[in-house]
Write a protein that binds this DNA or RNA. Structure first.
Lengths: 135, 135
DNA sequence: ACATTTACTTGCAAAATGCAAGTAAATTAA
DNA sequence: TTAATTTACTTGCATTTTGCAAGTAAATGT
């Protein structure tokens, strides 16, 4: 039995151990936008994650039940990464990050329509986005 | 002029550069509970941050305008660390982390009353908590 | 059969974190 | 008034994580 060390019993601390590194939330972000991605898709993100780091983070996220890895239906050479319910449930958190960032950092034009929707009705936006990921 | 490199223009990415390391959110958590803390207070947290790391993170958070450092009114040997408005604005984010963690990890007994308040009326809870930090 | 795509792994350098001990200014105790 | 203590760090070094570049292996395309 592998024993997972935790720094403390604090929910914040435990959460950080699941996704609180330099890359995990960016991987989760990409999956929230795209619903499903291949290894190569993640490498296309503008932050340019290194291939070994990506492999390590994907594995850790899978071990933490935040994403799943399945063979691509159209090719056995590819794998599909998707969010689990646990991963999808990070959506409200991601929305709050966006709202915070909007207040303190410049927002790229192409993200502004999304933020407008959030401001219009946050709960509805989250609900609809989660439904889109679930279906 | 110091140029701050950013990995991308993404709001999530920029946010992570401000507080997306192994310790910053725990420091912010402590300040949300306590409103103001000294260097020594942070060292008492159960996660046992190393002194050099604490100094480095406090400095980075100050540089990112998330916390302030002022001399303690009662002793020039101490400094008070407090959240700025930018730091306080992370409160909704912190609440969402708690709600997510509540769903997937065991929650210590002493945190459960707080979560009950959040469930009762999230917006009211956040508003009141922020007011308490601001006054 | 051979080249290409895809998902990695490997080796090594650089950066961040962790540990233990040390320092310096301010405060308190003798 | 001097010495011990408190407080906030810094320093040196080991360990871990991240980053870069190149390499590998299975599946697919030509």
């Amino acid at each position: 039995m592998a024993v997972v060390k935790q720094r403390s019993a604090c929910p914040i601390s435990n959460s950080l151990e699941a996704w609180g590194d330099k890359w995990s939330l960016l991987i989760i972000r990409d999956l929230m936008f795209a619903k499903q991605l291949t290894y190569g898709d993640f490498l296309k993100a503008p932050e340019k994650i290194a291939t070994n780091i990506l492999a390590a983070r994907l594995q850790a996220l899978e071990e933490n039940s935040i994403i799943t890895k399945t063979v691509h239906p159209e090719s056995r050479a590819k794998f599909l990464y998707q969010l689990t319910q646990k991963g999808i449930d990070l959506y409200p958190l991601m929305v709050e990050i966006n709202l915070w960032a909007e207040k303190y950092y410049p927002i790229p034009e192409e993200r502004k329509p999304l933020l407008a929707l959030i401001h219009k009705d946050k709960e509805a936006f989250i609900k609809k986005s989660i439904e889109a990921l679930t279906k």
